[in-house]
Design a protein around this nucleic acid. Structure first.
Lengths: 208, 208
DNA sequence: ACCTGAACACCGTTCAAGT
DNA sequence: ACCTGAACACCGTTCAAGT
């Protein structure tokens, strides 16, 4: 936790409010973003934040818009269209994972679509190369987008709790016939592996 | 919103606290569950709730445990193992969807595993019939569980915001070569279809 | 064993008043 | 144009005191 700016000579700006709010969220989590704490961090009265951004809800909208405009495109590569789509999806997952708090907020506000806009167009280009267009391409894009967003949302939420196990060994009879299964289920979830498995299964279906 | 019980002759019980808390959440959402509102609904002082359940966090734990013990098993059918697994997955999705608020809480608390325990054992039985056991079965169970939980979490969160579109038509150049794609992308997400697509792709991979 | 009111340290937000 | 303090209606939680 950085110490609050005690006094300030410059007026606060809207961008500065957004910057500081982002910092508070990324250093802690969304619950650290209170209007009073934000004001303390900025060295102003709470009420002056209301002048700049309206209210807390509008501030959250601004944070999401900032995220969207910061995301931009992502580097990806591969020899075949399928390899490029795989690379693209993995890169987007990693990129979103840098802002897990924000993507949860974006999701709640129905802004996931806008967030993925650059990815959609790159994906549409790759799909067109393998002859997938129109509603089929839309389905593929929707499914991949869902898979990526879900992976980040699920891993993020789970990582706040106890290390998420898939299974609870105690729920299985001690005499259960497949001890290797029970043992494997009690390991922590390997999210990247689950992601890759789902991705590759989807691509088998979606990319001819 | 039901009117609060004005006076009461019986002592409050822990179960009654949990019941009322569940009702508050399911009739509204998690933000409706405040200790003060709960007390008003029960017709007691706020502080007496603390005597029964500890604090708000412990109450949320109790709600999740209640959900888990209420879930139990689910009916499913089908001629082939694959059909039965598909039916099982769909039924679990529907079942969880009856308690979207609670499953978000369960997920945050790392209790998804316990929630899915009955499903895991049914699934293990079906997988064994097609020769999938051990770590392979654990992977399959983990992937299916992730898919079901993600579907509910994503659809639930999205449904609080504006009707989620996959794509924003305005983000595409008006001259884009595939208008059918752009049009299809701007329709609301069909979550059951996305769920079934992902499920069937996973099963192609996981069930021989 | 169960309940109570008072108190504390927080929230978001509005408003009238300042420069 | 920008900032301020006071005030309101909320939170969760603790505690000493009641029966």
């Amino acid at each position: 936790m950085t110490s609050a700016t005690a006094v300030r000579d410059q007026p606060v700006t809207r961008d500065e409010v957004v910057d500081t709010a982002l910092r508070l969220i990324e250093e802690n989590d969304i619950s650290a973003l209170t209007m009073r704490r934000l004001a303390a961090e900025l060295g102003t009265a709470v009420t002056s934040i209301y002048w700049h951004v309206g209210n807390r809800d509008a501030l959250l909208d601004l944070l999401v818009e900032r995220l969207i405009s910061d995301l931009g495109n992502v580097r990806y590569a591969g020899r075949t269209p399928r390899a490029r789509i795989t690379s693209l999806a993995r890169q987007w997952r990693l990129r979103l994972w840098e802002h897990p708090h924000l993507i949860a907020i974006a999701h709640e506000r129905g802004r996931i679509a806008a967030m993925f806009a650059p990815m959609q167009q790159a994906l549409a280009g790759e799909l067109a190369q393998v002859g997938v267009t129109g509603t089929k391409a839309a389905t593929a894009i929707g499914a991949l987008q869902f898979h990526i967003a879900a992976s980040v949302v699920m891993e993020r939420t789970a990582s706040r709790g106890p290390s998420a196990m898939v299974g609870d060994p105690a729920a299985w009879p001690a005499s259960y016939g497949d001890p290797a299964l029970v043992a494997a289920l009690s390991a922590p979830v390997d999210y990247p592996a689950v992601f890759d498995l789902g991705l590759s299964a989807l691509l088998d279906r979606l990319v001819p």
